[in-house]
Amino acid sequence: MAADASHGAQIAAACASCHDPSGRGHAIPPITSLDEQTIIKFMHNYRASESSSHVMHAVALSLSEEEIGAVARHLAANVRHRDPP
């Protein structure tokens, strides 16, 4: 995750507790190559339903719209591409 203290970075710090920052996640999907609108859409879906992940349901419920926007902008602006094989 990017090293700054912006609003988005402070929320994204929580994402890094489970999502591998190098984008190599397997069981827990990587989030380092998603665009802003996709992240927002995922968060709305997680907020609406517990069924796919209660961890993400809890996280999504705890964030305001403004916070979801801030973290989505931050993650999308710091896209990491996987290292070439």
Binding site: A16, D20, P21, H26, A27, I28
Partner: peptide, 12 residues
Amino acid sequence: QAVGWYSAFTAD
């Protein structure tokens, strides 16, 4: 997922 979490968490 637990195994994936362990790897991400310790990298964090």
